[in-house]
């Protein structure tokens, strides 16, 4: 009988020296996989400066429109173009785009949609006012001119 009961008392301490490595691996895993959704910009973006900036609280309500001279001038020409998501669109496509963006929001938040207009500083007011007109038509009346802070002297 004694043959079977023979158990060697193992060390109760679990070796923890490898634990930091595991945690570091986790850390690196998250650092590497967390990709901020960056859009491929097809238009030039030199964001203008301003001083009276306001910050928006709810990120989910913001949709971005990019406006500027196309980077690929051979393909798209030199006139300022509008980029929504990953494609260049025309002014009259804005209405449809806004409705798509609104559909992605919940019913209660639909009228709070904010359009962040990231326009290049070399753009003229013509295309900007065209966009504003279309946004009024689409009933997306909260518009934010994306700017960066100006260093005040």
């Amino acid at each position: 009988m004694g043959k079977f009961n023979k158990k060697t008392k193992a060390d109760t301490n679990i070796p923890t020296s490898a634990l930091p490595d595991i945690i570091f691996m986790l850390l690196f895993f998250f650092m590497v996989t967390t990709v901020l959704r960056e859009q491929d910009l097809l238009v030039e973006q030199k964001i203008p400066q301003a001083t009276q900036l306001q910050k928006l609280q709810k990120k989910s309500l913001i949709s971005y429109l990019f406006l500027g001279k196309p980077k690929n001038t051979a393909l798209y020409g030199v006139e300022p173009r509008i980029q929504a998501n990953d494609v260049l669109i025309n002014t009259n496509d804005i209405l449809q785009w806004v409705n798509q963006e609104k559909d992605a929001l919940s019913e209660a938040e639909r009228d709070q949609i904010t359009i962040s207009l990231k326009a290049d500083r070399d753009v003229k007011m013509g295309p900007v006012s065209d966009i504003q007109f279309e946004l009024r038509e689409a009933d997306a009346r909260k518009l934010m001119y994306a700017t960066v802070g100006k260093v005040q002297d």
């Binding site: 900036l53 928006l56 009024r136 009346r141 001119y145």
Partner: peptide, 16 residues
């Protein structure tokens, strides 16, 4: 924090 969205807010008039 991801670069925050700042800008000048403007409320457009309702559509005509």
């Amino acid at each position: 924090t991801i670069a925050s969205d700042k800008g000048i807010l403007n409320i457009l008039p309702p559509k005509q």
